[in-house]
Simulated scan of single mutants.
Amino acid sequence: MHDNPLPDTTRAEPATSPRLCGWIKRRYRTALGLALRGACYGAGTAAATTTVYWLQHRP
């Protein structure tokens, strides 16, 4: 079909894939902790904003 002398590397798995998977597995708990921390900061900010808004607009 094609007369390309180079090997077809489109289907080859990248060499860094096992290293990347290992890196993700080692840092999974850290990433979850940071996501939980961010969610808590967001919830706290929303609660404080809602409280301030309610205090400013009550009769």
Rank of each mutant, 00 (worst) to 15 (best):
A12R: 13
E13S: 11
P59H: 12
V52M: 03
G33C: 07
Y28N: 02
A43Q: 02
T49I: 04
A31R: 03
A48T: 07
C40Q: 06
K25T: 09
A43D: 02
L20I: 15
R37V: 01
L6S: 11
D8G: 04
H57F: 07
P14V: 08
T10E: 08
Y28T: 05
T9S: 05
W23H: 14
A31G: 11
D3C: 12
I24N: 04
R19N: 05
V52Y: 06
S17W: 08
L36F: 09
A39P: 00
E13M: 12
R29N: 06
W23F: 15
C21R: 15
G42E: 00
L36S: 12
R11G: 14
H57G: 00
P18E: 07
T30W: 06
C21E: 15
M1H: 11
A15E: 14
T45I: 06
A46M: 04
R29W: 05
Y53C: 05
H2Q: 12
M1N: 12
H2N: 14
I24D: 01
L6H: 10
S17Y: 06
H57T: 14
P59Q: 11
L36A: 15
N4T: 12
Y53A: 10
A39S: 12
N4G: 00
P7S: 08
T10Q: 09
L32G: 01
P18D: 09
L36Q: 02
H2W: 07
T49A: 13
T16I: 11
S17A: 14
T9K: 08
W23Q: 11
L34D: 02
A43N: 02
L34W: 07
G33H: 03
N4S: 14
A12Y: 02
L20H: 11
R29F: 04
G42N: 05
T16V: 10
T30M: 09
C40W: 08
D8L: 03
Q56A: 13
G33P: 00
A15L: 12
T51A: 15
A39I: 10
T45K: 02
T45S: 09
A12V: 13
T9H: 07
H57I: 00
A46H: 01
R58N: 10
P5C: 12
L6Y: 13
A46L: 14
N4Y: 06
K25Y: 03
N4D: 15
T49Y: 08
R11V: 00
G22H: 09
L20G: 01
P18S: 13
L20K: 12
P18N: 11
A35F: 05
T50K: 03
R37C: 12
P59F: 05
P18R: 11
A31S: 11
R29A: 14
K25F: 05
R26T: 07
L55E: 04
N4K: 09
A39N: 04
I24G: 00
G38A: 14
P14M: 08
R29V: 03
T50E: 01
L36R: 04
D3H: 13
A31W: 08
H2S: 15
